[in-house]
Amino acid sequence: MKIRLNGQERLLEQIDSVADLIRSLELAPEQVAVELNNQLIARSQHAAVQLTEGDEVEIVTMVGGG
């Protein structure tokens, strides 16, 4: 399945949910927040929310800033 992840095309294999995607990227779930098609997905919903072809996903974290 092809999605857009942080503005880049990405081909996903054996990934169904948002939680699967976070795991495959080796990200710490408590250090990211996710939007799916411009909708915020609560951390508690990561396992339940399924990804589908053409989804736009944003995964963000905190960085240094003023």
């Binding site: 963000v60 240094g64 003023g66």
Partner: peptide, 9 residues
């Protein structure tokens, strides 16, 4: 303060 940015993939 901190900023919110896309994660490095």
């Amino acid at each position: 303060t901190v900023a919110v940015r896309r994660v490095e993939l």
